[in-house]
Design a protein around this nucleic acid. Structure first.
Length: 196
DNA sequence: GGCCCGATTTGCT
DNA sequence: GCAAATCGGGCCA
């Protein structure tokens, strides 16, 4: 079952945990790539010094986070990689969840084709925010795309059980007291985690 | 217009 | 362990 608005319309900490185990589907020309979300991070908006939308900073880039939940926020990092986020909370509250790791379920051949790397470890295909965007062919044209109404990218439910681990977020040393918040979540023992 | 830096990844030392 | 790659976004002038 495809996930609808009420699922996304919660604070980003709750959504980040709820997204674990769910299936992220990417459709390109009718062909589906299916992955399982195994690692996420919550960005709590106005109060969160690590968030692009800290202090309600509203710019062309952060604009989508102020919009409706269930919209994709895709931004460019280090001039060469993309990061995929899902907008959380009510309109006007700029929270989002960063997808940091996914496990391939269907379409492994396409993921391989999209990721030309020397490493032969299967986990290096999608165990990081920039890596999974490359593997799933997610770029800035998907910024603002609607995971509830559009077919390019969406989430479907999965009842499978798993154990969730909470940890500090990665690479946000600039965030003062917010750098130590345990707002990173991942599925215990999964190999597609970006970092232990 | 110019400057600084980043929610990263990779391959080499 | 570490530095290079590479450029848009935010901010100030």
């Amino acid at each position: 079952m495809r996930l609808e608005l009420p699922f996304f319309q919660r604070d980003s900490i709750t959504l980040a945990q709820e997204l674990l185990g769910k299936l992220l589907v990417r459709e390109i020309d009718g062909v589906k790539i299916v992955t399982k979300i195994v690692e996420t991070e919550a960005y709590m908006g106005a109060e969160d010094k690590a968030a692009h939308s800290y202090n309600n900073r509203r710019t062309p880039r952060t604009e989508v986070m102020f919009g409706r939940a269930g919209i994709a926020y895709v931004y460019i990092i280090y001039g060469m990689y993309y990061c995929l986020n899902i907008v959380a909370a009510k309109e006007g509250i700029p929270q989002a969840v960063l997808i940091r790791g996914v496990e391939p379920i269907e379409g492994l051949d396409i993921l391989r084709k999209n990721r030309i790397i020397k490493s032969k470890k299967i986990q290096d295909l999608t165990n990081g925010p920039g890596k999974l965007c490359q593997a799933l062919n997610i770029d800035k044209t998907l910024n603002g795309s609607d995971l509830i109404l559009d077919n390019k990218l969406y989430i479907i439910d999965n009842k499978e059980k798993h154990e969730t681990i909470s940890a500090k977020r990665i690479n946000i040393d600039y965030a003062g007291e917010y750098k130590d918040k345990l707002w990173r979540f991942y599925i215990k023992d999964n190999i597609y985690i970006s970092k232990k």
